[in-house]
């Protein structure tokens, strides 16, 4: 349904800042009825990718096919297959009610008004907005506004729906509800959805597959359960009094799991990435051999940077 080939985008240099290679040679496919997560930390290039898929940013190189149509060459027909909820945008008119928004955007997308009433009722019901049907969007809660924006994207009947950070800034409850709805929609309506997020939990909860991007490049494209293994990896930060001996250093470097050693004025930090806890004992043994004093061992939350590094290292 979506085919992206060798997509590249660099933002030109501006006063005081060099050009930014926001998206660097990205290729992927998404098939019909798939809910795919695009995962990456801030500035990874998620929004840039989504906006290129919406025809709002022109790529420097590469091609985008939506349901077989070349977005760059057949913009209009290709666009009729896409709708989107963009990050940080209102996406809907605050001065119109829930119903009026749905009506207006249906018209904007060229849908026939016949049967629209029932369609609108269906989506309002689905998103739990029936009671708010005649409430202006600006008076809705943040979560409801976001739900309405998604409903507006869905009412266009487009085959592809792109959601940029759909749960960003929402409370736990609203975020949960939106995730449940997305799953339901994919199941019931065979829509193809890409959602971007920097939150592994969102992806884990909704998607079967995710692409992880970092610095504009794809670092992983895999099923969630495989990606989760990477996130399960434990990280320990060991703080040792004073510095390490050269014998300790060379032995530690031989252990794959040891990521980095940092020297501070009177202590040394060692980051260890562990899949098997036995490795930790090896590290401790090395430290004890020269009777270094271990000040603390803390388990740290795994984060993207480390996972990316890990993936990159594995090739």
């Amino acid at each position: 349904m979506i085919r992206v080939e060798k997509l590249q985008k660099a933002y030109p240099a501006k006063k005081g800042s060099p050009p930014v290679q926001a998206v660097d040679n990205i290729s992927f496919n998404v098939s019909q009825g798939e809910l795919m997560g695009l995962l990456g930390s801030n500035g990874a290039g998620k929004t840039t990718t989504i906006k290129m898929l919406c025809g709002l940013i022109k790529p420097d190189f590469g091609s985008i096919y939506i349901d077989g149509l070349d977005l760059l060459k057949q913009r209009t027909p290709a666009l009729s297959n896409i709708s989107a909820v963009l990050e940080g945008n209102r996406n809907i008119y605050w001065r119109l009610t829930a119903k009026e928004n749905l009506e207006f955007f249906a018209g904007l997308r060229g849908l026939e008004p016949r049967g629209m009433e029932a369609e609108i009722d269906y989506f309002l019901e689905l998103f739990g907005l029936t009671e708010k049907i005649n409430v202006e969007a600006r008076k809705l809660s943040r979560g409801m506004q976001q739900k309405l924006a998604i409903a507006v994207a869905l009412i266009s009947k487009s085959k592809v729906v792109l959601l940029d950070e759909p749960t960003l800034g929402l409370d736990v409850q609203a975020s949960y509800e939106i995730r449940q709805l997305l799953k339901k929609i994919v199941q019931e309506q065979e829509r193809t959805i890409i959602l971007t997020t920097h939150d592994m939990n969102v992806v884990q909860d909704t998607c079967e597959r995710a692409i992880i991007i970092n610095d504009g490049r794809i670092v992983a494209d895999d099923r969630i359960e495989n990606l989760l293994k990477l996130f399960k990896v434990k990280i320990y930060k060991i703080i040792v009094q004073g510095s390490l001996t050269s014998a300790q250093k060379s032995r530690l470097v031989e252990i794959d799991a040891v990521q980095e050693m940092e020297k501070f004025p009177n202590e040394t930090a060692i980051n260890v990435l562990l899949e098997k806890s036995e490795t930790l004992y090896d590290v401790i043994d090395i430290l004890r051999a020269d009777s270094s004093l271990i000040k603390s061992i803390d388990q740290e939350q795994n984060n993207f940077e480390r996972v990316f590094l890990e993936i990159l290292e594995r090739g």
């Binding site: 709002l56 209009t76 666009l79 945008n89 904007l108 997308r109 060229g110």
Partner: peptide
Amino acid sequence: QEGTLEQLYMSPHGIGWV
């Protein structure tokens, strides 16, 4: 500014007609 222009841009009618 408000972030609805993109939606107008995504109309299959094209921005001129919109």
